[in-house]
């Protein structure tokens, strides 16, 4: 189970999607949430703070989600951080590419809060924070 105080980084270039993901996390009682609008700004936060989970879009200007994932997996200080890709890219080749890059789980937009919670459960077990 993901610790109720887990620090979660939400990365998406659209503030709408960051809010939707934050709302879904808050509905699961996770409130220790930070955000970034692309891979570059996410990496800056990851290099100075400890995060327990990264929830990240794929297609962003600047550093994309897949580039952020590869950078994290190549860095010993970040390689073990669970990474949930949340993306509109539903093509099989994209999913395979993400798996090969070391993604922990993958959710295709559009999604409901229920689906989001189920993905977290698949990653961490029961995710409802106390």
């Amino acid at each position: 189970m993901l610790d109720p105080n887990a620090k979660i980084l939400v990365v998406d270039d659209f503030s709408t999607m960051r809010r939707i993901i934050k709302n879904a996390l808050k509905s699961l009682n996770y409130t220790n949430i930070d955000e970034a609008d692309d891979g570059t700004s996410a990496l800056q936060k990851l290099r100075v703070e400890r995060f327990d989970l990264v929830v990240c879009d794929w297609n962003m200007p600047g550093m994309s989600g897949i580039e952020l994932l590869r950078t994290m997996r190549a860095d010993p200080t970040m390689k073990a951080i669970p990474f949930l890709m949340v993306t509109a890219e539903a093509k099989r080749e994209n999913i395979i590419e993400a798996i090969q890059a070391g993604v922990t789980n993958y959710i295709v937009k559009p999604f409901t809060p229920t689906t989001f919670g189920e993905k977290l459960t698949a990653m961490f077990g029961n995710t409802k924070a106390a």
Binding site: S15, N59, A88, E89, A90, K91, P110
Partner: peptide, 20 residues
């Protein structure tokens, strides 16, 4: 701006689903 941002995300999602 919230509407503009949301329409961008909707466009992205609809395009992604159609492309798949």
């Amino acid at each position: 701006h919230e509407i503009e941002d949301a329409v961008g995300e909707l466009t992205n999602m609809i395009s992604g689903g159609a492309r798949a």
